[in-house]
Structures are given as structure tokens and as C-alpha cells.
Nucleic acid binder design. Sequence first.
DNA 1: TGTACATCAGTGAACGCGCGTTCACTGATGTAC
DNA 2: TGTACATCAGTGAACGCGCGTTCACTGATGTAC
Lengths: 205, 205
Amino acid sequence: MPKRGYHHGNLRQALVEAALKLIEVKGPTGFTLSEAAKQAGVTPAAVYRHFEGREDLIAEAARQGYSMFADLMQYAYDKGQPSALAAFETTGRAYLAFARKHPGHYIAMFESGISVNRTPELSDAAARARGIFERAVTELCEHIPPHKRPPASMFSAHILALSHGVVELYARNTPGTASPYSPEDLLESGIGIYLRGLGLIEPDS
Amino acid sequence: MPKRGYHHGNLRQALVEAALKLIEVKGPTGFTLSEAAKQAGVTPAAVYRHFEGREDLIAEAARQGYSMFADLMQYAYDKGQPSALAAFETTGRAYLAFARKHPGHYIAMFESGISVNRTPELSDAAARARGIFERAVTELCEHIPPHKRPPASMFSAHILALSHGVVELYARNTPGTASPYSPEDLLESGIGIYLRGLGLIEPDS
DNA sequence: TGTACATCAGTGAACGCGCGTTCACTGATGTAC
DNA sequence: TGTACATCAGTGAACGCGCGTTCACTGATGTAC
């Protein structure tokens, strides 16, 4: 919490960070504007100097999440290039890594009920993330013979659904839902079997 | 709302149904005990004659969900017998059908944050549902040559994750997240590719 | 069949609480001269 | 460098609200005699 500059220094970002921490710990339900303000060492009313209200604060947290997410995937994608398969796989791994490393952002993005169309900034950030993922998928699709190639949008929907499902069911420390496998292993093996089904990797492993 | 018998007749169930409706419409967040009571035509205090409190009411809604879910999967499984593949596929379809037909139950079960171990009844119902699904998966596994057979628990985790992901991302009417494919098509095609990856259905379709 | 009684589902008022939001204000910071 | 002023980030008190929960109660229902 830097105390430099104007009164607080950087209250806007401090509030976003407090909100992320609260969302992570208490769920999207448990998050309250008042508590976020308190965590940032400030009166609830001060929040209104920087945000329109509670929802706007969550939306900004989600926006930053999408932006980081896009950066991370872009980086992973570049690292896997020029192999379309490697680029795809590292991008997939980046998904889970993001969810684990930034649970607050992940929850704000996917579980807070905030519409992705709430603000243009949020919508743009989400579109950028989606675009990177779809590029990785599309390039990989080109390695499948056209007559048995699934539409790229279906392909990406499958992978996203599997990834999201793994995060929701197995990457949250919900006691009782435990699986003997780590989320990373589950996702990697699942994607592996799926890619084999598409003929993208050799059938025997 | 039957008015027979004791004062209300069957307030307990009426409250569960009101809660389900509210959870479906307003999300697990939006659900309040007071409003559920109001919907059932009763004072909030009356709820305490039948439940320990708000959480207990949600837990009962989830329990009924798991119970219905298990029945539905059992029925689907039986219908697909004696073919292990057919039994598996109808069971998978039952998952999505349940999520679409009973969104209130689904949300109470998977999105309300209620621990499955909250009460023995809830835990039992969940275990029964899980057991049926795992049986379908295990039987299907036996058709894979042992040396390339994945553990049944991993197999089932993959399918559950994919199913849950499809529900969360594509079967909720969240504007902006739309996909050109129906959730049913997405899930069916995804599972098909996955099974092909395991060599359970012929590689060319 | 009729009456006296026990049961207990639902009432209604009250509680303390924390919420999001508003408002007039204050006082530290940055700026013009 | 020093002073007067404008800006505006954050204050603190207040608001109305609906929440979950408690409590002594009431009165309809079912039962014993």
C-alpha cells in the first residue's frame, strides 16, 4: 500500500486489490464494498471517488483479470511457436496456471455474475483473451484433414469447457470433491485423449 | 401449494420449492430465507419450524437435487444396458438434461457453496449419484485393453469436468458467451472425440 | 356425540447488524503569482 | 522563496433497507375421555 503522492497514493488500485483478496477468500457473495474500503484503510464513501459503486469495482477487477489472462496466454502461445501443437498445449496449461495463481481474478471473471458486456473496457479485454485462444486452436485445426476437421469454435468450446470444469470441480479446495489426481494432470491427460481423438497426436502413448 | 392437513399442509416442501425457484432466478447469492418464506405465504419465523436456518434449507434443496439426479442417471443407465457404451452415453446425456431441466437444483448442488458433507443425508445422496456414474465409467473401461486403459476415476473426472464446464459456460443464458452450438451438441461431440481418443469408438466418423 | 385438554405449526413484533449510498465538510496537495 | 488560492481525495455522520434469527404468543388441529 504505497502512501506516496496524493492522499492515499493509489487508492483505486488498492481497492481493486482488496476486492480481489476478499473475493478469493469469501467468494463473490461475501465481497462487500464496505469491507474492501476498510481493508484499504479508507471510508466506504471514498470508494465513490474512484468507482460508480460495488458492481463497477468488481467489473474492474474482472477487467484486470482478463487483461492479465490475455497477456499470459499470449506469452505462452509465443513460447510454443512455431509448433502449432506446442503453442496450443502451453496455452492450455496457461489457463489452469492462471486460475490457480489468481483465484480472485478468476472468480471475478467467471463466477461473479458480472456480464462481460458491462463496460467496453471489460468487453475488450475479454475479447482479446478469447482471440488469442482461438488463434491457437485455429492453427492447430489446420493440421487436421479438412474432411474430418471440427469447426474451430467447437474445438475451442470443448477445451474451454474441460478447462473450466477442471478448475471448478477439482482446483478449488472443496473437501469431499477431491480426486486422486492433480488438476494439472487431469487437464493435461484429458486434453491429450481429446487430441488423440482428433488424430492430432499418435494413438499410442 | 396444497392447503390440506395441518395448518399449511406441507410447508417444508413448499419452502424447498420456493427456495429452488429463487435460487434459479436470482442465483445462490440472491436467495434469502425471508423471501422464500414470503413466496410460500408464511412468516420468516415459520421456516424455523422445519429447518435450522438458511443454510439448512439450501442443503435440503441440494439433497433433493442429488437424489433426483441419481434416479435420473440410474434410469438412463438401465436404459442403455446391456451395451456398456450405450449405457455410458445415455448417462452422460442425462447429466445435461438434468442441468437444463432443474437449474435450481443444479445451482444448489454445485454453485451454492454448500459442502457435500454438511449433513449425512446430503452426503449419501451425492455418493449415490457419484456411484452410478462411476459404475457406467468402470464398465466402459473394461472394453479398453488394460495396458492403455486410464484409471476409471480419471476417466470419470474428465467427463464430469467437460459436462460441468459445458453447463457453466454454455447452458446458462449468459449473453455474450454464446456459442453457435447447443450445449447438447457440444457435450455429445466432445465426449465422442474423447471416446475416440480412447479407442472406444471407431476412429472415422 | 360432546367436551376438555394437549400439541405444535405459524404469528407478529422486535433485535442487532452490516449493507450500499448520499451529503456537506475538511484539510492536504499542487499551482499561480 | 513566500503567500493566497483552487482543487479534490477522503471524512464522518446519517439514511433507509432487508437480512437472519429470537421469543412469547395464539389458535387451529387432533386426541382422550
